[in-house]
Design a protein around this nucleic acid. Structure first.
Lengths: 335, 335
DNA sequence: TTGTAGGCGTTATCAG
DNA sequence: CTGATAACGCCTACAA
């Protein structure tokens, strides 16, 4: 059952059928009804491939994310999908992992599939070494690129991010003001965004301690999540355990810290304050519940799609949106 | 840059170019190299839409799930995507929510997009009222349907499930044997699978108590997750709080039970034993960590894709795979 | 308002 | 092994 069959049964030309399919105004109401009728009767659906060929689009956008099972990205995928759907776009999903070469391949793949745009979900897409981001710039010559929680300047690249730097800076400052002398910062991301968070921490420490700041900077990179953080802290020599607060770059690390506290009979937040990041589902499952920085994934997704639709509609649009990231106070801090 | 351009530059016909694109044997090695050369030089990529038109496939399978941000489904999506990718298939993702009519629309949408198959992820797709599953049967006339953790018999429908009935039955039995008199079962799904789980619970209670079983059956439906479960239990009259164990149809409910125990200074597992379901990330974030039934999502996904590939390759394949679901013992039970 | 005809970029069938 | 050429099903000027 194709457009020819319909045109015959309706006694019109395929051009007319095509017009009613595409909601073209210039069709006599009577004719339109007739065609619609026949289409319904025969349960006709236009062939999407042929349509794609003609229009050079199948109304699809590609979403790349490192791991759809990470709670943060899982939420992102959900909101992106829902918002895209509302605008009649489908989602082609790619879980790329964290390897750069692999990601380049996925990018090429999506481009060759002729998606209308590509969304990069997660701050880890922007590499520390700017040369490693060149492939994204090159891709943007062919289609719009939207970064959800990532920043990269280029024409046809659009960014929606949270101000991680400011958020960590303020949180650290708040803890210092509350009397914490030694604050540890644990992170598991070496991306550009990861750097920004560390910088926020550094700035607060530096402002507070001036010359002696170096004695109080205490950061650690963990290659993993819950178990790795717990393990790392537990094997620390006693002399290095003089911190009274820990800020983490992700909720999962903070969960590890809670477990460490439990292992060592430290009371939270009395003996140890803990701050997570992302306000993920994990943060309300733990006991005590986690104080965490909300990276506002839903807002980022909404704005991203809003922007993307403007771009695809050839409307003017701002290329960068920066949201403040509020601290959600729960039970692992006294502040 | 299309196939004609390449054919000209390589001094061959488009037919030959097409042959090398598709790895057809019958091309002289020399010719093949030449064409490959030109293709590489011009960074030529075949047009996916035209290809789709000709082959009537774009090597894409649709995944429907109610909510990609649910930890269980998030993992499912991840594994399905990875396994499909290995077989050179792309993923079109649909988050359908729980409304039946909405789901029917998504199903139609995917079919009209001409995906090669549709995967229904999550037991909640199979409705209690069998008539409501008819749309799935009808869809299977047009393309293969794969149910991940759902059972529906029909030609061209393939099911991979965990034996929820048996798992809950055995868990309940184990708890009874361990001396628990009154065991509560809390669930938040009214699907076919939800029914099976309840039945497993019932059977164990019935076997154990015989005539008096009715006095010991204690089930409750919660329309929500953590907070709702916690609230429900807390507002229960004291006389109804004589249970010493709770089994939940999902880890999130079990987290709610842990919080209830905390609220009421009940020691877990001494005063109250708790069993969750799905072995999700939540189960290791709580304190104490959750004993839970592992619904083996990774295995289900792997088998699903394996089966689907056989079907798409026109190979013979079994239509149903049933996995036992083991109990993962952690800290919320003494068993 | 409607119809004709050419184009979109491949694949596949036949000859040669 | 290679090349013409007809599908594939729809869109869209351009005419009427």
């Amino acid at each position: 059952m194709n457009i020819y069959d319909i045109s015959k049964k309706a006694g019109v030309s395929i051009a007319t059928v095509s017009r009613v399919i595409n909601g073209n105004e210039k069709v006599r109401p009577k004719t339109r009804e007739k065609v619609l009728m026949v289409m319904k009767e025969n349960n006709y659906k236009p062939n999407a491939f042929a349509r794609g060929l003609g229009l050079n689009s199948m109304q699809t956008v590609g979403i790349m994310c490192s791991d759809s099972s990470d709670p943060y990205m899982a939420k992102g995928i959900y909101h992106l999908e829902q918002d895209l759907r509302k605008n009649h776009y489908d989602v082609l999903l790619c879980c790329t992992g964290y390897d750069l070469d692999e990601r380049k391949k996925y990018m090429d793949l999506l481009i060759s599939k002729r998606v209308d745009a590509i969304i990069l979900l997660g701050s880890n897409f922007i590499e520390h070494d700017m040369g490693d981001n060149e492939y994204i710039r090159k891709a943007s010559e062919k289609l719009p690129i939207v970064l959800v929680n990532g920043l990269l300047e280029n024409s046809n690249i659009y960014s929606c991010i949270c101000d991680d730097y400011q958020a960590v800076y303020e949180t650290t400052k708040t803890l210092l003001t509350a009397g914490h002398k030694r604050i540890m910062y644990i992170y598991n991301s070496l991306s550009y965004s990861g750097d920004r968070k560390v910088s926020g921490y550094m700035k607060a420490i530096n402002e507070h301690y001036g010359n002696q700041a170096n004695d109080f900077i205490y950061t650690h990179y963990v290659n993993g999540t819950v178990a790795d953080t717990r393990l790392y802290l537990n094997q620390l020599p006693a002399s290095d355990k003089d911190f009274t607060a820990v800020i983490c770059s992700d909720d999962s690390l903070a969960i590890g810290v809670i477990k460490y506290a439990k292992d060592n009979h430290l009371s939270v937040p009395d003996d140890l304050s803990i701050v997570g990041y992302n306000n993920s589902i994990l943060s309300t499952c733990s006991d005590p519940e986690l104080t965490t920085i909300d990276s506002r994934i839903e807002d980022l997704c909404y704005q991203s799609i809003q922007t993307l639709m403007d771009v695809l509609d050839k409307k003017e649009s701002s290329a960068q949106f920066i949201f403040p990231a509020p601290l959600i106070k729960r039970e692992t801090t006294a502040i």
